[in-house]
């Protein structure tokens, strides 16, 4: 049914270079969250810290009462059984074919017979649309297929938390939208907690229940999708709407002169908030909220044209 991840005051640096500081957020059980941020802001580092592959300098990550940041190696191995992880390029084991790759966690961690394993592996491969490629080696297939194989391997142990590292990077827009649909369908089906890390704005605008924005070594904002998409906060507004006007420059922050020059420029209006991607079965996900619900509850008027079916997904710059 998914479990909650409570992150408190997390700080991580490598040697002298600070990656991010004071990140606090709660990833609610069973919901889809997107962590958005420009390349190199430490999104992958954040994911790896959540699974205990990297130790944070300070702070805690509590899952089912265990603090990942300070627990013993043994507890860490236990907790990791709750996770399914899709690494950036799938991280398939190069020496095994796809079938053996996906069967690997089952062979390592369960006492299932080969025929039971076969059943589960084929079911998961079917789920991600990879039936018929069992005998292929990871090096022989496209990046998109590797990612889907990575998802299948991450799912075989029925995880409570699924982490995706840039599921949409390196894919064409059509494949990206298929993959996003797959993610939403999976969430509807297994009800696990999903955290997607990406720099793709369209994914962030349409897929999740909650969005976080990692920018300039800190968590700029984290909250419900509609809250961030209707936010007037300059960084959030600029990034989520892919605008040039705002505090973010080509390389990190703009300097004072540039900001001064922009002062009188009118901010382009907020684009309409798109509908959230629905499961293809048509049955709403458990954690799905009614379109416009958050805006109404919080007395925020969404930008004109929001929540209209079939509206254009592209944002005007």
């Amino acid at each position: 049914m998914g479990v909650e991840i409570k992150v408190d005051n997390l700080t991580k640096s490598f040697g002298k270079s600070l990656i991010w500081a004071d990140v606090s957020l709660t990833i609610p059980a069973g919901e889809i969250c997107v962590m958005l941020g420009p390349s190199g802001t430490g999104k992958s580092v954040f994911l790896k810290t959540l699974i205990g592959l990297l130790k944070p300098d300070t702070g805690s990550i509590v899952i089912e009462g265990t603090d990942i940041a300070s627990c013993s190696e043994k507890d860490l191995y236990e907790i990791r059984k709750l996770f399914g992880v899709l690494f950036q390029d799938g991280a398939m084991f190069g020496s095994m074919n796809l079938y053996d790759n996906i069967a690997f966690p089952l062979r390592e961690h369960t006492k299932k017979s080969e025929s039971q394993i076969r059943e589960i592996v084929l079911e998961k491969m079917d789920l991600v649309g990879l039936l018929g490629t069992e005998d292929k080696l990871p090096g022989e297939i496209s990046g998109g297929m590797r990612k889907r194989a990575g998802i299948a391997r991450g799912l075989v142990l029925d995880p409570e938390i699924v982490l995706f590292d840039e599921p949409d990077s390196g894919l064409d827009p059509v494949r990206t939208s298929f993959l996003n649909q797959l993610i939403v369908d999976l969430n509807a089906q297994i009800d696990a907690t999903f955290l997607i890390v990406t720099h793709d704005i369209n994914t962030a605008r349409t897929v999740p229940d909650n969005i976080g924005l990692l920018y300039h070594k800190h968590l700029a904002m984290f909250g419900p999708r509609e809250m961030l998409l209707s936010s007037e906060e300059p960084v959030v507004r600029q990034f989520l709407n892919a605008q040039r006007v705002g505090p973010i420059g080509m390389s990190e922050e703009k300097d004072a002169d540039e900001l001064e020059a922009e002062k009188d420029q009118d901010l382009p209006p907020l684009p309409p908030i798109p509908m959230q991607l629905e499961p293809s079965s048509g049955i709403p996900r458990r954690s799905q909220r009614e379109p416009g619900g958050w805006c109404r509850d919080n007395g925020v008027t969404p930008p004109p044209g929001s929540f209209e079916a079939n509206m254009s997904m592209t944002t005007k710059v």
């Binding site: 699974i51 592959l53 191995y77 990791r80 690494f87 950036q88 991280a91 084991f93 190069g94 966690p105």
Partner: peptide, 17 residues
């Protein structure tokens, strides 16, 4: 080294190996 940069080693550790 190539397994490391393909994150195969991370994937292994996540799978408890």
């Amino acid at each position: 080294g190539s397994r490391k940069i393909r994150e195969e080693l991370d994937a292994m550790m996540v799978l408890g190996i």
